[in-house]
Computed example of a mutant assay.
Amino acid sequence: MRRLQGRALTAGLLMALLALAGCSTPVTEPAAVTVSGEPGEAPTITYVTPLQVDKTRTEQIWEGTGAPLVEGAPVLIDFWLEDATDASLVKESYSTNPTAMLLTEEDLGTDLYNTLRGQKVGARLLQVSPGTGSGATDYPTVTVVDVLPTRADGEPVAPRPDLPAVTLDASGAPSITATGTDPPSALVAQPLIRGTGEQVGASDVVTVQYTGFAWTTGEPFDSTWTHGLPVSFSLQDVKAWAEGLVDQPVGSQVMLVVPPTYALGVTDSEELAGQTVVFVVDILATGHPDQAAG
């Protein structure tokens, strides 16, 4: 199980524990917020409720070791958000799928933008904020944010000479060189980069970057890299992707060669009817909707 329920101590319980320990000093300040848990897992958050918050503060739980976040570029995050008055869970993404946004104040809002700006992929961050008074979040919040990669990250796999050669630009966006040969008649799933993350399950919601190409010309016809953000969808909705991506580890880049016997699903096109297409897919995350936190 990936999700670990956030927890908090009530002020009354803390007072009782102090009394049992022989301490008569009254508690006048809320306890500090502490965050524990392993990378890739939902955090455990501990603090005294109700938490008194008069201004937004942020803390780096651990530093990222990946690429620096780029202003205006996509950022992918997992988050755990609690109502700090009683430590109740408001929303989380660890059991479903992460959220993709642009690193701009307009897209993220002032607080989250300032929390993420200057960070690197792999960082875990704490943000404690007062209520906005807007009605949507008129209570203080405690949020833990994990910064995820927006491109595949792992060990390169030796390419197959019978498949199109793949070239990546500086951002990670792929292009291919057509082979000039007849396409295979069966579905091909060829890893190009092998990640080390969790394996994709048949009923998972995957978060990916991808580009689709025509086999014959190598020309792209659809790409998240040009649309701007990674996307998430259920594998059950796309048969070819389900067959090709199941059991692949997160962090991998996989080439899918899809014959015309499969419906494209994510990007049906009349121009490509009857043609074999090639997808280069970066698997960024995989979630389990059936395990979503209540």
Rank of each mutant, 00 (worst) to 15 (best):
L4P: 00
L18N: 05
L18F: 04
C23F: 00
C23W: 03
P26W: 02
V27P: 02
P30M: 04
S36L: 03
G37V: 03
P39T: 09
T46Y: 07
V48D: 04
V48L: 13
P50H: 03
L51T: 02
V53S: 02
T56M: 13
T56W: 05
R57Y: 07
Q60P: 00
G64R: 08
A67R: 09
P68H: 14
V70I: 14
E71K: 15
G72C: 07
L76R: 09
D78P: 00
F79I: 00
L81W: 13
A84F: 01
A87K: 04
S88L: 07
S88N: 08
S93F: 03
Y94H: 13
T96R: 06
T99F: 03
L102Q: 12
E105F: 10
D107E: 12
T110E: 12
D111V: 12
G118I: 11
L125V: 04
Q127E: 09
G133E: 11
S134C: 11
G135S: 13
G135V: 12
G135H: 14
T137Y: 15
T137P: 01
T141V: 10
T141K: 11
V142N: 00
V142G: 01
V145Y: 03
V145W: 04
D146F: 00
P149L: 08
R151N: 01
A152Q: 06
P156A: 14
P159V: 09
L163T: 09
P164S: 11
V166I: 14
T167G: 07
A170W: 01
S171V: 03
P174H: 08
S175M: 02
T179R: 02
A189I: 05
Q190H: 14
R194E: 07
T196Q: 12
E198D: 09
Q199G: 03
V200I: 15
T211V: 04
G212Q: 02
T216A: 15
T217W: 10
G218I: 01
S223L: 07
W225I: 06
T226M: 08
H227A: 15
G228K: 13
G228S: 06
L229E: 01
L229G: 06
L229Y: 08
P230C: 13
S234R: 14
L235I: 10
L235Q: 08
K239R: 15
K239I: 10
K239H: 12
Q253A: 12
V254H: 04
V257Y: 13
T267H: 10
E270N: 14
E270R: 15
F279M: 10
D282Y: 05
L284F: 10
A285H: 13
T286G: 06
H288E: 11
H288Y: 13
D290R: 15
A292W: 03
A292P: 10
A293D: 11
